[in-house]
Design a protein around this nucleic acid. Structure first.
Lengths: 178, 178
DNA sequence: GGTGTCATGTAAACAGTTACATGATTTT
DNA sequence: AAAATCATGTAACTGTTTACATGACACC
């Protein structure tokens, strides 16, 4: 349930509308939520109720009125608190591994096709990541330490996918030699 | 929604009760569902309705009657079909990375403690994995190809965690040198 | 005598996704 | 003239988790 904290984080660099937040979260590689309206607008109501953000409402003739959200000091304190909290282990959902678990039902060529399919998916994810990096995503960093952290987050994801590809290579070799 | 297929897979090696399936799924490292009653018993009803499994009911005086589920040929066909279907990309939920994204709010020593906390979590996961492997988990394999596949699934998870540790090492170095 | 395992199931709450609804403005 | 973007929100559905409920039998 940390999308609220992610929103606090995003707002800490710049006041934004729900619509802006939605886009940032949807485009982000490491903020893993889908970033649909329901999540965002619900979270913003909660954050407002909790006093962690305030909003400035721009009324416009017709069109829904634009709401620009800003973190409060209480919101910043909450964010810091959360960042300090004990990390959770990473979670992996690799449905492919479950397919592979019963891959013995397949002929060798079918199994090979399955591996190739997975490889394609992983490569696609890697390309998406690099695309985001080139577009200089995640906006303005402030100081060198922060910018180092963001680079390392990106590097974490890249290495995770690269590791998957390396493992695939190993699997292919073992399958062919047996 | 592939827990149904995972259940078909498990039943394909041996008829079992819902209770047995629950334990296998909960102990498994790569079948990522929690394996709570609600999921299992609901899935079994669906599989039964679809004609993918049958059950033999052992009535016992008092105690709920034991139901032993067996895959039907239709179930095996469905399983094979699913195993052949185009793989999805892996999904990662690394909440830690989101904490790190705003890690610049922390003092250096706090940040270091955060990294250590994460490292501990990852190491714990690795130990759990090795424990499962030693207990010769995932039961009886049939032929060399299948047994190779199961070993490689295990190896995938190990390497994923190992990669995380290697990345942490790199991050530590970059943080200290800056 | 208490704890743990076996064995089934239900209820309630929470989280997440997809789709719906509206309507102006900007781009192609 | 059509399509995409801006901007907010709601409704319905699906998936997941936690907790409740029952009761025998085995083990310490």
């Amino acid at each position: 349930m940390s999308i609220n904290h992610a929103i606090l984080g995003l707002l800490s660099s710049k006041p934004m509308t729900g619509y802006d937040l939605k886009k940032l979260i949807q485009e982000s590689s490491f903020m893993y939520w889908s970033g649909n309206n329901n999540q965002i607008y619900k979270a913003l109501v909660e954050l407002l109720d909790g006093g962690f953000v305030t909003n400035e409402i721009l009324h416009r003739e017709s069109s829904p009125s634009k709401k620009i959200y800003t973190v409060t000091p209480a919101g910043l304190a909450e964010l810091r608190q959360w960042v300090l909290s004990p990390p959770e282990p990473p979670e992996f959902k690799k449905t492919f591994l479950i397919q592979l678990a019963w891959g013995d039902l397949l002929h060798t060529d079918e199994l090979n096709a399955l591996l190739t399919g997975y490889e394609q998916e992983v490569r696609t994810q890697l390309l998406l990541l690099k695309g985001q990096a080139e577009r200089g995503d995640s906006a303005q960093e402030r100081n060198p330490r922060e910018s180092l952290l963001w680079k390392q987050i990106h590097s974490n994801l890249v290495s995770t996918y690269a590791n998957e590809l390396a493992w695939l290579e190993q699997l292919r070799q073992e399958l062919n030699l047996t």
